[in-house]
């Protein structure tokens, strides 16, 4: 099975649980006192999808969303974006639209968008009705799901849904762009082909 690397970027206000969702997904772990994202800015997990294996390269905001200063490079080459809001905070849902707009502006054109209403274990203090969020997601053709990183609800499902929406690789030749990352000791032999 071929491994396909898919960059996924997380968006959403500070404190809605972006890092917690990834932490749950990748490590199946929940930390009540997770500090605002430091260091853990990039995590990966591989899941099977049809005839492929999807290796999610999940980029966290590294806190740059706090003062609304995410750099466009954050979105480069993303196959999918997960926009997270907190179902107990109406504000975080209202700013969702700003994140969608920012994504349309800076993100790749064919990006798969998923909206995750997190903290659904706190239903008793819910401020965002599920119906309203779902309708908004439908209006922008985004995946919608309510999650609880704390209780491990729908986190796997979120990424499965994303996997399903990723179009299969049509032509692997086209995909293999000859751009590359810089490495410490590039092999002179491998590249001396001409």
């Amino acid at each position: 099975m071929a491994i396909r690397e898919l960059k996924v970027c997380l968006l959403g206000d500070t404190g809605v649980g972006k890092s917690s969702i990834v932490c749950r997904f990748v490590q199946d772990h929940f930390d009540h006192n997770i500090s605002p994202t430091i260091g853990a800015s990039f995590l990966t997990k591989t899941v099977p999808s049809g005839h492929e294996l999807h290796k999610f390269l999940i980029w966290d905001t590294a806190g740059q969303e706090r003062f609304h200063s995410l750099a466009p490079m954050y979105y480069r080459g993303s196959a999918a974006a997960v926009i997270v809001y907190d179902i107990t905070k109406l504000d975080s849902f209202q700013t969702l639209k700003k994140w969608v707009k920012e994504l349309k502006e800076h993100g790749p054109e064919d990006i798969v968008v998923a909206i995750a209403g997190n903290k659904n274990d706190l239903g008793d203090i819910r401020e965002v009705p599920m119906k309203e969020a779902k309708e908004f997601a439908e209006s922008i053709e985004a995946i919608f799901i309510e999650t609880s990183a704390r209780n491990a609800v729908n986190v796997e499902e979120l990424f499965q849904k994303i996997s399903k929406q990723i179009p299969p690789l049509e032509n692997p030749e086209v995909e293999s762009n000859d751009s590359f990352k810089l490495t410490r000791q590039p092999s002179s032999t491998a590249r001396r082909c001409c």
């Binding site: 806190g63 740059q64 003062f67 750099a71 490079m73």
Partner: peptide
């Protein structure tokens, strides 16, 4: 931007 991200990953605060 890449250097800024590195700064942010290690706790730098960004504000445009």
């Amino acid at each position: 931007q890449c250097f800024c991200r590195m700064c942010a990953v290690f706790g730098g605060t960004y504000c445009l």
